[in-house]
Design a protein around this nucleic acid. Structure first.
Length: 350
RNA sequence: AUACCUGCUAUACUAUG
C-alpha cells in the first residue's frame, strides 16, 4: 500500500485529484487494501479542494472497510470543516473522535482553534488554550497565533494582547504570523494607533516583517483615514527590502480611497504600469467604489473599460459596485443597462 | 540523532450584508 500511497500523495501535491482517484481505484483492483494513510491523503486533497461532501464520503467508506480513522484522519477532517467554514461539523467530528477513543493532540487543538478563528469564537479559543495548559499539552506558536486570529472578527484587541502576553510569559516565541495576527485584529478593531505600536514592537524584537505585516498596517491606517501614514508604509517597505505585492498596493489603494483621496488612488494604480505588479480585480473594484465619492460615474465606466482592455476579470462585485455608483449619481438608466451589460460580459450575479 | 524518511494545523486587499 505504501507505494500506492506515495503516488496518491504526489498526485495530491500536484493538484491532480482525478489522477489520485484513478490510482486509488487501481489500488483496489490490484487487491491492495487502502490504509489510514491512503484515506487521509485523499481526504486532505478534497479538503484543499473544498469538497466537504467527498471528505465525509471517504471517511464513511473508510469506516465501512474497517480502516480505523486515527488522530491524523480526524485532524484532516477538522481542517476540511474549517476550510468550508463548517464549525458545527468540525465539532461533530471532534465528538466522534472522542467516541472513537482517539486522543486529541497539539494539532487537533490547533485545528479546532482554527475553526474558532473562522467562526470568530474567541472565547472558545481562549478556553481551549486554558484546557491545553491544564491537560499538560504543550501550546506552540500556532496555538496562540490562531487564538489571536479568533479575536479578529469581533475586534477584541484587549483579548488578543492578553493572549500575546500569556504566550510570552509561557515561553512560546511569537513569530511573524503571531504579530501579523495581532495587526489584523487591530485593523478590524479600527485601532491604527495600537497597530503602529505593535508594528514597532515587532521590529524591536527582530521578528521579520513581510507583505502581510505591511498590508495589515496600511489597512489599519486606512480605516482611520490616515492616508499619509499609509503611504509612508510603502517607503518603509522599500527600506526594509520587502517588495510590495498587489495585495499591499490594493491595501494602499483602499486606504487612500477610504480617506477620500480617490485621485491619489487612481494615480497610484497608473503608476503600477512601470512596476512588475499588475492591478487585479480587487484593485479595480476598489477604484470603482472610490468613484462613489463626488459621483464619478463616468470615471467608473472608464475603469470598467480598462478592465476589459487589460483582461482583468470582472465579477459580481464589479458590477454591483458600478450599479451602486451610477444609482447614487442619479444615473438610474445606466444602472439598469449595466445589469444587461453584466450578463453580456458573462458575469453571473449572486 | 530526539532530524529526514507515504497523511494533519495559523496571518493581509474590494461591494453588499
Amino acid at each position: 500500500a505504501k507505494a500506492y500511497n506515495m503516488i496518491i500523495s504526489a498526485c495530491a501535491r500536484a493538484s491532480k485529484p482525478d489522477l489520485a482517484v484513478q490510482v486509488f481505484h487501481e489500488m483496489r483492483e490490484a487487491k491492495v487494501p487502502p490504509d489510514q494513510f491512503t484515506y487521509t491523503a485523499l481526504i486532505k486533497m478534497f479538503a484543499r479542494a473544498k469538497d466537504l461532501a467527498k471528505c465525509f464520503a471517504l471517511y464513511d467508506e473508510m469506516k465501512q472497510n474497517g480502516v480505523k480513522p486515527d488522530e491524523v484522519t480526524f485532524n484532516v477532517l477538522i481542517d476540511a470543516c474549517a476550510r468550508n467554514q463548517a464549525a458545527d461539523q468540525a465539532y461533530e467530528v471532534l465528538s466522534q473522535m472522542r467516541q472513537a477513543g482517539v486522543q486529541m493532540t497539539l494539532v487537533t487543538y490547533n485545528s479546532i482553534i482554527h475553526v474558532n478563528q473562522v467562526a470568530g469564537e474567541w472565547e472558545e479559543a481562549r478556553r481551549l488554550l486554558r484546557e491545553m495548559s491544564e491537560r499538560g499539552i504543550h501550546r506552540d506558536t500556532i496555538s496562540f497565533s490562531s487564538a489571536i486570529n479568533a479575536c479578529a472578527k469581533d475586534g477584541e484587541v484587549e483579548v488578543a494582547l492578553s493572549m500575546l502576553q500569556e504566550m510570552k510569559a509561557s515561553g512560546v516565541p511569537p513569530n511573524n504570523y503571531t504579530y501579523n495576527a495581532v495587526l489584523s485584529v487591530c485593523d478590524k478593531a479600527a485601532q491604527w494607533q495600537t497597530a503602529e505600536k505593535i508594528f514597532l514592537i515587532m521590529r524591536n524584537e527582530g521578528i521579520p516583517t513581510d507583505n502581510f505585516t505591511y498590508s495589515s498596517l496600511i489597512s489599519a491606517y486606512g480605516g482611520g483615514g490616515q492616508w499619509e501614514r499609509a503611504q509612508a508604509v510603502l517607503e518603509q517597505m522599500k527600506m526594509d527590502k520587502v517588495r510590495p505585492n498587489i495585495i499591499t498596493y490594493n491595501s494602499l489603494v483602499w486606504a487612500l480611497a477610504n480617506s477620500g483621496r480617490w485621485e491619489a488612488a487612481l494615480q497610484l494604480v497608473s503608476g503600477l504600469s512601470d512596476k512588475a505588479v499588475k492591478p487585479n480585480n480587487s484593485t479595480f473594484n476598489t477604484l470603482i467604489h472610490a468613484c462613489k465619492k463626488d459621483a464619478q460615474w463616468e470615471k467608473a465606466l472608464e475603469l470598467l473599460q480598462e478592465m476589459k482592455d487589460l483582461n482583468v476579470p470582472r465579477d459580481g462585485i464589479t458590477y454591483s459596485t458600478l450599479i451602486a455608483v451610477c444609482g447614487e449619481a442619479g444615473e438610474e438608466g445606466r444602472a439598469l443597462s449595466l445589469y444587461k451589460a453584466m450578463q453580456e460580459d458573462g458575469v453571473t450575479s449572486n
